[in-house]
Simulated scan of single mutants.
Amino acid sequence: MQTDKLIELVLDALDDMKAKDVVVLDVQGKSTVTDFMVVASGTSKRHVVSCAEHVIEKVKKAGRLPLGMEGAEVGDWILADLGEVVVHVMMPDARSFYDLERLWSFDADLAEDA
C-alpha cells in the first residue's frame, strides 16, 4: 500500500471515530523512524483507545500488518506504528504537554547546518 493511501485510510478511520484536531506531520528528513506522523486527540481515555483500535482494525482489513501499538493499557497516549506512518492518539492534556506538532516542526535544513 502506498503511503498516501495509508494516510488516507488512517484519516478515514479517525474521522469514523470522531477524533479531534487531526494533524498530519511530514517528518521525512527529520526522523529515521518514520516518514509521517498523524496526531489526533480523543475526548476520554476510552475514546483514545477506541480510535487507535479502529485505526489498527481498518489497516488490517486493508491487508497491512501494523508493526505495533503501545499505550492501550493507560489510554493517555497511544502510538500505532504502521511503518512509514506513526499514529499518535492522545488525551488533550498529554497532547498539549508533549506538543508533538511543535517538536517536529523544526526545519531539517536548519538542523543540518547547526
Rank of each mutant, 00 (worst) to 15 (best):
M91W: 04
A80W: 01
E70T: 03
A114P: 02
V74D: 15
M90D: 01
I78H: 06
V48G: 08
T43E: 04
E70Q: 04
D99H: 03
A114M: 10
L25C: 08
L67R: 10
G75E: 12
A40I: 11
G68P: 15
I78A: 04
A13R: 08
A19L: 00
G71I: 08
D99L: 04
E53A: 14
V59S: 06
L14Q: 12
E101F: 05
L110Q: 15
K18V: 14
M17D: 05
R95V: 04
K30H: 06
K30Y: 05
D99S: 02
H54C: 13
V22L: 10
M69Q: 10
I78E: 03
M17S: 04
S44C: 06
V85L: 04
V22P: 05
S41R: 14
V24E: 00
L79F: 07
G42L: 03
S96Q: 15
F36V: 09
G71S: 06
D113F: 05
D15Y: 03
L11H: 13
D109S: 07
R95D: 01
M1R: 13
V39E: 07
K30F: 04
V87E: 08
A72G: 10
D81Q: 02
R46C: 00
F36K: 14
A19F: 00
D35Y: 09
A19N: 01
R95S: 00
A72Y: 14
E84Q: 00
P66S: 11
I78C: 01
E8N: 10
S105I: 01
D16H: 03
R64C: 05
V23D: 10
F106H: 13
S44L: 07
